[in-house]
Every structure is written in structure tokens, then in C-alpha cells.
Design a binder for these strands. Sequence first.
DNA 1: ACAAAAGTGTTGGAGATACACCCATGA
DNA 2: TCATGGGTGTATCTCCAACACTTTTGT
Lengths: 233, 233
Amino acid sequence: MSETASFDLSIDNVVFGFDGEKLQVLLIRQGLPGEDMGMDRFHMAVPGDLVLPHEGLDQAASRILSNLTSLEGVYLKQFHAFGAPDRVFGEKDKEWLTRFRPFPDRRVVTIGYYSLVSIAEYRPMPSSFASRAEWCPLSDMPRLAFDHNDIVMAGLEQLKEDVAHHNIIFELLPKKFTLGQFQRLHEIILNKRLDKRNFRKIVKRMADVVALDEKQEGVLHKPAQLYTYRKPD
Amino acid sequence: MSETASFDLSIDNVVFGFDGEKLQVLLIRQGLPGEDMGMDRFHMAVPGDLVLPHEGLDQAASRILSNLTSLEGVYLKQFHAFGAPDRVFGEKDKEWLTRFRPFPDRRVVTIGYYSLVSIAEYRPMPSSFASRAEWCPLSDMPRLAFDHNDIVMAGLEQLKEDVAHHNIIFELLPKKFTLGQFQRLHEIILNKRLDKRNFRKIVKRMADVVALDEKQEGVLHKPAQLYTYRKPD
DNA sequence: ACAAAAGTGTTGGAGATACACCCATGA
DNA sequence: TCATGGGTGTATCTCCAACACTTTTGT
């Protein structure tokens, strides 16, 4: 009853990006700046940081994302809180915390957000990254710091459910996209293959997806019709 | 950078119960024990409390639920974190915190869980409540402490989405239920009316819902066939 | 010419929707 | 006998799944 609890609170952002081929996740390489980092001296993680004392959660999520990746105005959704008592106390993790956190021994509960980005639209962005950030194919994720592998997987699960009911999938597509890209994206997220003709019938019924009078250029096959998504407001 | 954050972390549980007629939410009346509480001296809230220093989130959720309501082994699911910086600092809320919390000025972030209970199955329970707990129809919720009205509504939204994809709706039904109850429950959660004959056709196709050779008794109309749900494992 | 993805229709079956009357019970 | 919810079948339409070949471009 008189036990006094005190937690650090953080946000971790799983940023999904689609490049027309594969679904990717944005990772940052964290280490001591100026220090020569041997293979084990840094760690890969999803962009995240502590919530400030007077800041709302959504606000913190977008501040942190913007600080670490200079992504602004992207779709962001809270999906799960991760609070296993020992989630940040792996061996390498402790070392990193000691260097970067004021209270490295404090328990940290993190709120997981995912965000959705069309990689094509944000191509120019990486150069302005504060830390080193890189897209990493979901199918080829390295071992990440803390419980970040779990967080990424949980984010993907949530995305899968959300795609069915909300129109968020378009956040992952560039403004102009082909039906091939659109279908591939569905196949990746739902993790099953779809019939091309049936898929296109469904798309034809979506009033918000409209054909442009423009085609792909410079591809080594028949150029595809481009489409766009008009928000239903 | 040198700002030091320190949060209290709590769990709040939205307990949904179905009594065959209406969907209800379990509320507790919190006040000073032994104190005569005028109409404004106590507050109604969803069962919740602080997470202990070495406790996981799910673990905390079920401990707290069990402490405050003596519900054990019920379905529990985390659905959202609430962290507006001022969420516990309403006027009446502050007063309550001063009496019951070691650090009443500390910011509290809460993790919302919902749980599902068949009221019929737990009828005998309320007598053993530590605090005063009572079922309150969702359609008739009073003003609650803190941001608990928001939490309840967010829980309901989540429930609505989850019902479509997981078999959780049976958690709200008693072991033996009628198709009328089953349909009413759907109608309430989905907030639309369903056609009786069509609904029953769907149920017939559910292999997990089986008819018992038993009927309702003591009702003032034709007694209904009872059904039960067998988990598909 | 070849490789690579784009594009295009039909059919059969399953599931969704709409709709109205009789039945068993307790009061 | 009346009020109350329980229980039942059919016809139509829409949606889903399965399936194979031709087209356009770049190399």
C-alpha cells in the first residue's frame, strides 16, 4: 500500500513504409556520437524516446518521430502499451541506458505507435535525419534493442486488423500508384495472395480510387495506369 | 534534455457485463470509509489503481480487478493508454487524490483494459466486493471521475471492432443462453437491429454454438431453447 | 524475340437481405 | 384471452472465388 512507484514513460514508433515492392520499417542506429562503434557498440531500434513531463501522448509521439526522422504530419496511431518489468534490462540495453538516460535503472513503460508512410513521397527526407535512420525490409529485420522486435510484430498485427476497417492503407501509397502496387501492398499486409482480376473488380467499386490520365514511364514492361485516392470528405 | 520525468502508472478496467437485456458497466463508488459521504463526497469510477513497481501490465490489471471486484479469471484485454497531462486534475479529482494517493500531484498515465463478464454467472459476486461496486447500464452512465467517461466510450468502440473478428462475444453470455439474448447482445454492441430469421441462419452455421436439450423456465412467454458455446480448441 | 508485368470476363456457389405468420407460456 | 417473445422458409440479389490468355513496353 505504501510502496512508491515511479516510472519513466516512453514512446516507440513503428514506422511502416511501402516502396511499391516491399513493406519496410524505419530503424535508427543509436550509439555514442564520435565514438568508434564496433559491431556491438551501437544498437538498432525503432525511433523512440521519453515523454516529457507536460506533454500528451500523441503529442510526444509526433515530436519524437519528427526529432528522430524529420517526418512531419504522417499518420500516427497508438496501438499498445508495453510494460514488462524487465523489458529494458537486457545486458546490452543496460549499457546503452547508462550512457543516454538520466535514470538508467528506472523501469520504463513504453507506448507503441505505428505510422504509415509512402517511401516514395519521403525519399528526400533521409539526408536530414538527426541520427542515422534507414529503411529495413520487414522480411529481414535484425535483432533490435529492448523488446523492439516484439513491438514491431505487434504493430504489424494491429495494422493488419486496421486495414480491413479503416482507409489507412492509402497512407502507405504514393499519391499516384498503380494497381499492381496496391495489390502487392494488400498481399504483404494480409500475408496471402490475391487474384488479380478479383482484386481489380473490388477496386473498381471503390469510389475514392480514381484513374488519372497518366501512365507509368521508364519501366521495362507495359506501363501501368496510374490511380489516386481522393479522401471521401 | 535534463528534464526529469516521473510518472505514476495505473490501470483502469472497463468491465462490461450482459444480463440478457442490457449491456452494463461495473462502477465503484469510492469515498472515505466511515465518513458520511454527501452527494459530492464520493466519486464513481471504473475499477482502477496504481501499477506496482515490479508488476507486468496484464498482471496488474487482473490483480486490481480481483481486488476491487473479486472477479477472477475473466477475459481481459488492453485497449488504449490515456495520458493527457491534466487527466486527473479536475477539481473534485484532486481532492480525492489528496486523500488516497501518496503523490497526489504526480501525473498519472493509465492503461485502459476492458473485460467481459456474463452477469448471470457472477450474480453471487457483488456481496463480496471490497468497495461498493454496482452494475450500471451503459445507456445511463453518470458522470465519472477523471476521464473515465472517455475511457468507457473508447472501450466500447474497441469492443465493437473486436467482436467482428474474435470470438470474444461469448464471454458476455452465460454458459446457457437463448438466441434472443445472443441477438440482443449483437444489436447493442453493433448498435443496429438485425433480422431474427437471418440472424438465426448465421448462428446455425456456427459449429461452436450447440443446442442443449433444455429450455428456459419461468418466463412469461414461450420458453426458449438454450444453447451453449464450445470453445473450438 | 524475349522477358516482365499489365490488363481483361464469365460462371457457379455462398452468403446477405427482405419479408409475415403461428406457437407456447404465465398472468 | 391477452401479452410477450420464440420460432420458422423462400426468393432475390450481391459478392466471392476460380480460372487463362492477350497486350505493351524495354532490352
